[in-house]
C-alpha cells in the first residue's frame, strides 16, 4: 500500500533521515517507534508532502507520490494527522469534520459514524474547535481525517500532551479502527508500550535510521527494545 525506499530528508544542511525503507501492506497497522528527535516526524512529513525529501522514493498504491503537493497526496488517499493536530480553530467541530471530506461532501450518515467513535465530539458539535481540550482536539483531528475516507491514515504521536486517561480514550478508538481491515494505519509513537499493544508490526527508528523491525510480539521480547523503550532492565 505504501512503500518508502531509501528516503533521505534534510532541513537545510542538516540531514535527519538517512536512507529509510518502510513497507506497509493494505490493511496493516504499522508503528514507527523511537524517541523524541529520532526522525519519525520528519519521515512522516516527507511521506505526506509537507517537507520535501532529499532523495528516495515514496509509492502509494504503486504510484510515486514523491514531490507531489500535500493536497494531492491527501486526495490520493493518504491522510496525515500531525502531532500538533492542526485543526481549524475558528470553525465549529462540525465544520472541521465537514472540511475533512473536502472537496466532496461527506456521504449521509458519515459524520454520525465518526462521531460515534468519539462521543465527546457529539456534545461539542457547535463549539469552536479552538476551545476544545487537548484530548478532544486529538479526537477531532482523527475524526476529521477519517471523514476524508482515507486508505492510509498516518497518525503522528496521537498521545502527545494528553493525560493518560485521555490517551487511553484515543487508543480505544484506534483499536476500533485497527479492526476495520479496509484501513491501513501508520502510527508514530514515543510511548512504545502503547504503540506495540496496538500495531501488527513496527519499525524502531534511531538517529534517522531503521534500527530494528519486526512484529509487535518480536519487538516486545527484544532485550534492546525492553531496555531502551519499555523500561525493563
Amino acid at each position: 500500500m505504501l512503500r518508502v525506499e531509501d528516503l533521505y530528508v534534510a532541513y537545510g544542511d542538516i540531514e535527519v533521515v538517512h536512507g529509510i525503507d518502510v513497507e506497509v501492506a493494505p490493511g496493516e497497522v504499522v508503528g514507527i517507534i523511537g524517541s523524541n528527535g529520532a526522525g519519525k516526524s520528519s519521515l512522516l512529513r516527507a511521506v505526506c508532502g509537507l517537507h520535501p525529501a532529499r532523495s528516495g522514493e515514496i509509492r502509494l498504491a504503486g504510484r510515486s507520490i514523491i514531490g507531489d503537493p500535500t493536497f494531492r497526496i491527501a486526495r490520493a488517499g493518504l491522510t496525515y494527522v500531525p502531532a500538533e493536530r492542526r485543526l481549524f480553530p475558528d470553525m465549529t467541530v462540525l465544520d472541521n469534520l465537514l472540511m475533512g471530506a473536502y472537496p466532496q461532501r461527506p456521504a449521509p450518515g458519515r459524520v454520525d459514524e465518526v462521531v460515534a467513535l468519539f462521543p465527546r465530539l457529539q456534545e461539542r458539535r457547535r463549539q469552536a474547535a479552538g476551545t476544545l481540550s487537548g484530548g478532544e482536539q486529538q479526537m477531532l483531528a482523527i475524526g476529521r481525517a477519517l471523514l476524508a475516507g482515507p486508505e492510509v491514515l498516518v497518525l503522528d504521536e496521537p498521545s502527545t500532551g494528553l493525560a493518560p486517561a485521555l490517551a487511553d480514550e484515543v487508543y480505544a478508538a484506534l483499536r476500533i479502527l485497527r479492526d476495520d481491515r479496509d484501513l491501513t494505519l501508520i502510527l508514530a509513537e514515543q510511548q512504545v508500550g502503547r504503540a506495540l499493544a496496538l500495531v501488527d508490526r513496527a519499525y524502531v527508528i534511531e538517529q534517522g535510521r531503521v534500527r530494528l523491525q519486526g512484529t509487535a510480539a518480536e519487538l516486545r521480547d527484544d532485550p534492546d527494545v525492553q531496555r531502551a523503550y519499555l523500561g525493563i532492565a
Binding site: 500531525p82 492542526r86 473536502y102
Partner: peptide, 9 residues
Amino acid sequence: VAAELAGVD
C-alpha cells in the same frame, strides 16, 4: 497547512 492536509489546493 491544515487546509492543505485536508485536501485543499
